[in-house]
Every structure is written in structure tokens, then in C-alpha cells.
Amino acid sequence: MRRTIPITFVTIIILSFTQCQKEEKVIVPVNVPAGKGHDLLSEYHFFEGDIKSLTANEVSGVLPYDLNVALFSDYASKLRFIYVPEGSTIRYDTAEILDMPVGTVLIKHFYFFNSENNQNNIETRLLIKRENDWQPEIYEWNETQTDAKRTVIGGTQKITANIKGQNRTLNYLVPNQNQCKNCHNFDGKLIPIGPRIHNLNKDYTYTEGRRNQLEKWQSSGFLSTANVSTAPSWPKIDDMVNSLNSRARAYLAVNCASCHSRHGSAANSGLYLEYNNRDSLQLGFWKGPVAAGNGSGNLNYVIHPGKAEQSILLFRMISDKVEERMPEIGRELPHEEGIALIREWIDSQK
């Protein structure tokens, strides 16, 4: 749709002069600075109308999206958006994380519902694709929720949130720029984690209706043409149509393998949980802990086949202690649904 609208150098174009005042459509192009990020999130114009509504500025190249399997972050709700510059296209690739054109911005927004059940926006993270690398930027929302301000060092916020009907207090960590890279690490370079075809291949409810995301990206000119009807897809963790093994492996791939791969920050552990890995020792079967400290939980094996309760992998998912829990950052509360899945999976192993 946006490809039919010419972008001009004028920052604000007012269309439909002839129409009634109330239907005036204001088109504001996305504005991504060349160097460090804007001071305020609003300056990018990723969203239209009241920024708090987080409505994608679709006519200027921003689309909301979702993933089949998401990283768990203390039951934070997340909204994801992608901005692809006019005239640029992502090459369809099912082997790797999608290679995005220069100027692409991935936007991930984190919020909770507070004890009065109002949406409490916490932070919005950006990954901006530059010529040779990805630049992370983090924006913390102000108390009045009118905008979010750039932060380099993040920080810990004590927040109370309504999580599955219960008020819970937690130490929420807004990461610093180094911590972004701790997870988004591939051989020392910062890369995205989520956007791969397997994880994007799902339906999304757009303003015009429900549609497959890959089809939408193609019709919007975001994604190169390919037959998406045969595209691979990762199963949602509660989608019982799919095998227990594929659901568990997709969950581990998304929640663990960004660090636990030979290219990630936990390369030294020898525990590699990528979706396609078939090496049983690397997957943790009968594998002793490495550099785990108290993370071993006094247990001998990362995965003790058939015995989830004897497996370090499950122990570290359950623990809420700083020195024991996994992932190391971004989680304090246990993910009950993920734990149930992995428990069932380990118990089913022989």
C-alpha cells in the first residue's frame, strides 16, 4: 500500500484536502538519524497518532508483527514492529536469521498491566541496521506515558504487575547496550534473534483483517518473492497438533540458543540448543555442567533423559536466583508454561 504513495522531502504531507476535516490523513515519514539514536522515541515517527496507542505508521513503512515462539521475559507483553526503508527488500531465506537491508529498524515494545489493569509501557528497544552492523537503542517510558527517553545504561525497575490475575512485584531489568549484545551475539557481532521465516510464518490480525505475515510482507514489498505456502514454521508451544519434540526444540531455540550456540555468548558451555542440532552431547543429554557453579543445582546432567527433575536444564528454568536462573538476564519469574513443556519433553526422552 505504501508503495503507491510518493515520499517527498516535505516532512508533512496533508492528503485529502477536499475531504471533511475529521478525516484528514497526516503522513509523517519515519526519521532514523545517522549516528546515535534520537533522544525521544517519538522523534522516529514509527507510530501514528498518540504514541501511547502504539499504532504502526504503516503508510511510511512500519508494520506490526508477531512470532510463533517468543522469548519469555517475566510475562511482559510485547509488541513488535518492523520498518523497512522505501525501495528496500528483505531477501527470503529459510536457513538463517533474515538478512535485513540497511536502514531497517526492528522495534520491540515491552509493557505490563499494572495492579489497576492499565497498560504500563516500560521500554521500547530498537535494532537499527547500519552498513555493517546493527545498532541497539533503548527507550524508557516516562511516568506519564507521553514518550520514551533514550538510555545507554538501562537500569533495574521494581514494578508491580498483574500477571495472570495476580499482582506480582519483580525487579525488571532494562538492559544496557552491552547486555543487548550479550543475547544478540553471533561471533562477537550484534544480530537480531527473532525474525526468521520459521518464526514469522503465522497469521496476524492487521487493520484490514487476518493474514499470513509473510504474504503481507511480500505484498507490502518488505520481502522478496518466494512461495510462502511451503515456508517452514515453528510450532507454538501450546499447539498440540505438533509433536512434543518440535514444540520443545522450538522453545529452546528461541529462549536459549541465541547464547547457547557455538556462535553465542555461552559458546564456552558446549551446550548448543539450536533447532537443527542433532548432537546429543551438545544438546545436554548426559552432559555434565560447565562453569555452572550453583547453577548445577547439585545435579549431574544438563538433561537426564526421562528424569526432568534430575536435569539441570529444568532446574535453571525454575530457579529465580540470580546465580542459578536461566536465561541469565531478562528473567526473574519462572515461565510456568515453558517449564511444563520442557518437563514433559525431558520425561519423554529415553
Binding site: L173, G188, G293, V322, E328
Partner: peptide
């Protein structure tokens, strides 16, 4: 309250840390 170590230095060249004590980190 967060982080697997007290101080972490990653993917860097020629770094010297000196005349400091690191006390009571939760992990490494």
C-alpha cells in the same frame, strides 16, 4: 539483582584491570 557475573568484559582487545577488588558477586 541481575547478571551472571560481577564484571564482564567481552570481545575486547588489550584490556587491563588493576588495583581493584570485586566483592560478593552472585555469580562469577
Amino acid at each position: 539483582t541481575s547478571g551472571g557475573e560481577g564484571v564482564l568484559i567481552s570481545k575486547s582487545n588489550s584490556i587491563r584491570f588493576e588495583d581493584i577488588t570485586i566483592l560478593d558477586s552472585k555469580g562469577d
